[in-house]
Amino acid sequence: MNGNVVALDALLDERRLWKGRALGRASSAQPTGHAALDALLPGGGWPDAALSEVLLPAAGVGELQVLWPTLARLSAAGERVALVAPPHIPFPPAWLAAGVDLRGLVLVQASGRDVLWAAEQCLRSGSCGAVLCWPGAVDDRALRRLQVAAETGQTLAFAYRASHDAFNPSPAALRLLLEAPGRVRVLKCRGGVAPDWAIPLAAG
């Protein structure tokens, strides 16, 4: 019993022991803009300098609404946002209505493996505030590269993937699943336990 005395604080500091639900949380440098979502996430916002995944069953279920407040905040601060291989045209009237400044929005057209390459270049350079990519079918090694690139460039990275990829493991720091339109579930969040209920996503 008294042979090994380990301080609880040390375990907590090493992140070997996680508290079920931290109460006093630091406010993140990258809030999502959705109060309900911020409350669920360990840092109170997006994991900074890391890859986040957004998994969705089909287009048109609120995948842009999740990010629009963040993109609006970044573009207002003069940061550059890169969209690598978006599946459709970002329709300017709606993006402007969401508060995104189109001047900071860069579209990169790529296909196949070039999507990952372009996203990695944008992330690694550290010259963008956020990089959104639609990599298609990728394995966890490619995602790990994106994760490392996001750390190197200290940039927010977002990868949009199909919802059936939720069963595969992923090195992303945060995984969000858009279950139904406007309902988001946190599948994984680094530094905390993922809650097992979905929350509604308020527009804006």
């Binding site: 629009w68 970002p90 329709f91 009237p93 709606a94 993006w95 400044d101 189109l102």
Partner: peptide, 11 residues
């Protein structure tokens, strides 16, 4: 910079 409500994000 022309904002319009009720327009879709993807075209």
């Amino acid at each position: 910079q022309l904002a319009q409500a009720m327009r879709p994000g993807w075209l």
